[in-house]
Design a protein around this nucleic acid. Structure first.
Lengths: 237, 237
DNA sequence: ATTTTTAACTTGTATATACAAGTTGTGTAA
DNA sequence: TTACACAACTTGTATATACAAGTTAAAAAT
């Protein structure tokens, strides 16, 4: 039998996810039962349940014993707290990106906020800055640091309309598996206030993230300044 | 065979969790392999994997194909982003609680930030306020609203040294299953600045949460003001 | 001695099956 | 009509098994 590479449960997950987001399954309605999904897609129940577990984890459905799997309302705000599946960390589709600093190789900061391995220190650090907009208003400014390990031609790529994570996945087979993050509320300094168009000293959400990937010891570090005046950060757990 | 009520995979989860937190399995070391856990606890691999999946979800271990399950460093900061298992939403153990407003029944606010069902509106709302300390410094102030549905004698209970969630679980069999939350950074008004001992206008983390429970249609609503000057909010995903 | 192959581990995916337990509508008995 | 029992659904838990695929170290070949 020909191997399709990507597992069955993930294919079912992506399919149902797409159908929920496109409105085939409306908010508040119920998905077909596990047994129906088995019959339709020719799978066994553990496999179907594996897919549904992922949908629960990412906040697309909620299950209830004896009843079924109810479709949840897709998040209204910007969801960068959870990975939201295998695709991206951003919920809103119409997020626009401006590259402030194209990827360049620099040294790691001397006092970095996460511990680095020797391997990470030895190789350089690919550095880039982006400003992201919703409705043409700046919403967050992020600084990304990626260890320069086996990423040929990375600094010459363009990221204007493509997600950083999409590029990593399609060109380097690097997928985000999870991560950890710290959140604070801080005062905007001059630079941040100008970038995000908020008063100096105003409150800004500040995130430091360390994302783990399917590559051993390969982490992506992000620092994010978020203007929570108009939008909130949303998370499901 | 006598029914033990709580499922096997959850028992194994709680056991391994306890051993990780108490240091039996050190950070960076590997858990016994799935097959070993099967043999030791007389379980099958799907059941053991179910327990390990929960440990991964809550950030206690990370798995790698071909290698094993590595124990992760327990979070240093205050983890109220994820439920962290079945127990509580708070990572730090030495969190102290002061009740500012003992539970009392009031009406729901007219412009509540989450949609309420008719059932929730009809019954009243149990309201309570708490101030929580780490190292004798106020860290966060939270307002909790619980629909007054079938909770006899709730307002006369004491919560000084007991978690709200522990009380709900032990007296009313209500368990938190998950939830959603929104985050913002806001300026401290006079009340918040006095409570959290920060300058007026200083940045404060602001959270609005809706927690779902094992009881149909029963949600707990929390509003949290977090002083992120000394501590950060931590999350794994 | 060095390189390659193999074997023995590990976790990942998948099938097949069974029963427990919560939910809901229907049909029967009061 | 009303109350209750039951059947037919739903998801939850668990067993037993098989093979795929990544990792590692020992064995074999060069």
């Amino acid at each position: 039998m020909g191997k399709n590479q990507i597992p069955q449960y993930k294919k079912l997950y992506e399919l149902l996810r797409k159908h929920i987001l496109s409105g085939v399954y409306e908010e508040g309605s119920f998905l077909p039962s596990e047994n129906e999904l088995c019959a339709v897609h020719n799978l066994t129940r553990p496999t179907v349940r594996h897919a549904l577990e992922a949908l629960v984890r990412d906040g697309f459905i909620s299950k209830r014993k004896g009843k079924g799997s109810m479709v949840r309302k897709p998040p209204q705000d910007i969801g960068i707290l959870s990975i939201a599946g295998t695709i991206s960390a951003i919920g809103k589709q119409y997020l626009q990106t401006q590259i402030l600093q194209k990827p360049k190789t620099i040294a790691w900061p001397t006092d970095f906020h996460f511990e680095l391995t020797d391997a990470e220190k030895d190789f350089g650090c690919i550095y880039m800055e982006r400003l992201r907009f919703v409705d043409e208003m700046p919403v967050f400014y992020d600084i990304n640091r990626i260890p320069n390990i086996n990423l040929p031609r990375f600094t010459s790529r363009t990221f204007e309309n493509k997600s950083l994570f999409d590029t990593l996945r399609s060109h380097y087979q690097i997928e985000i598996k999870g991560g950890e993050q710290k959140l604070k509320a801080i005062k905007a300094d001059k630079k941040i206030s100008q970038l995000l168009k908020i008063p100096k000293g105003g409150p800004v959400l500040f995130l430091e993230r360390k994302l783990s990937t399917n590559r051993e010891g390969f982490y992506i570090y992000s620092t994010i300044y978020f203007n929570s005046d108009k939008h909130a950060i949303f998370g499901v757990f």
